[in-house]
Design a protein around this nucleic acid. Sequence first.
DNA 1: GCCAACGTTGGC
DNA 2: GCCAACGTTGGC
Length: 150
Amino acid sequence: MAYWLMKSEPDCFSIDDLKAKKTAPWDGVRNYQVRNMFRDDMKPGDLAFFYHSSCEVPGIYGVMKIASVAYPDPTQFDPKADHYDPKSKKEEPRWLLVDVSFQRKLKHPITLAQMRDDRKLAHFRLLAPGNRLSVIPVGKEHWEHILSLE
DNA sequence: GCCAACGTTGGC
DNA sequence: GCCAACGTTGGC
């Protein structure tokens, strides 16, 4: 089983939104590296941190579970959707998503600032300069250490 | 295949 | 709102 960190802007979709829905499609990803991770590396049952980005206190707010294999993201075909991709064909979808299901909220968020200050997370990819991937693989040792901070 | 221009991400 | 990083696009 693998571990992940998945970023979302809480104004757009937050851990509370996922809690209310129980399971939701993680749609709107338009990055090939992430698409390939969805397709090749993510498996149902994997666990993922829910990370809030571009907000007052960026950090990890909860835990979710990958609930499906990768399948085509329907929003790419919807001209009204934010992430509509006119170049993607139904016969040959360019973008994929996975379903995620709510597991729990952390008792308090593990903030980005807190993780930056933690020497044990010196090599955590989230903290690497210039990192912009919205989905990041998390090593077991980092996963367990972050949970121990809760 | 190179690379400049442009767009997006995301912390601050 | 600014700006650095970096992915994508498209002309050549």
